[in-house]
């Protein structure tokens, strides 16, 4: 039972407001957003910060949601449909962290996309967002390929990420987004 205390201490040290591990469903998404809205209300956050956190959280959660909402998802073991979400608040910033399994063959594309947006300044991100918005095609799932660009744009800070191979086919992808106070 000491492990429970260890987990508690760890979450405390990391200033975690909310954490979740499991499958991200549409209902869960709604609930997490409601909880975070009332938490931020309670913390009397500035409207500007509340909006940024909410917006980025929506995109992060919907990335996780759409990630498992794929045709080939039936071939993925149940454990690998599970994802991690953590929202932490330190005196300096909010941090939204996500973790999910992905196909190792998709790592290259995602890494290039993240490196591309991280290399852009504010004006470049704005131009790139407009270009993808105007020229990009929408997938049948309703994703527009704008998620990471929008997250980078609203966060205003580089996205931290890592890819950890778990076996020859699967990689665990972690993403951390900071929103400065």
């Amino acid at each position: 039972m000491d492990r429970v205390y260890d987990i508690y201490k760890k979450l405390e040290e990391e200033n975690v407001l909310l954490s979740f591990k499991g499958m991200v469903t549409s209902e869960l998404l709604t609930t997490i957003l409601q909880i975070m809205e009332s938490k931020m209300e309670h913390l009397e956050e500035k409207p500007k910060i509340k909006k940024k956190v909410f917006n980025i959280l929506v995109e992060c959660l919907q990335n996780l949601y759409h990630h498992i909402d794929q045709d080939d998802v039936v071939h993925i073991p149940t454990e690998e449909k599970s994802a991690l979400l953590m929202i932490a608040k330190s005196p300096q910033n909010y941090q939204i962290t996500t973790g999910n399994y992905m196909k190792s063959t998709d790592v290259g594309d995602l890494r290039s996309k993240l490196e591309l947006v991280n290399g852009m300044d504010r004006a470049e991100l704005k131009a790139y967002y407009k270009k993808v918005l105007n020229e990009g095609k929408m997938s049948p799932k309703g994703t527009a390929g704008l998620g990471m660009i929008d997250i980078a744009r609203k966060s205003g800070q580089p996205l931290e990420f890592s890819f950890m191979p778990v076996n020859d086919k699967t990689t665990f992808f972690s993403l951390a987004v900071k929103i400065a106070e």
């Binding site: 909410f54 917006n55 919907q62 998620g147």
Partner: peptide, 13 residues
């Protein structure tokens, strides 16, 4: 609009 996500942004366009 108070909030919209990137999926909506394309539909709004």
């Amino acid at each position: 609009l108070e909030y919209f996500n990137t999926s909506s942004s394309k539909c709004i366009l």
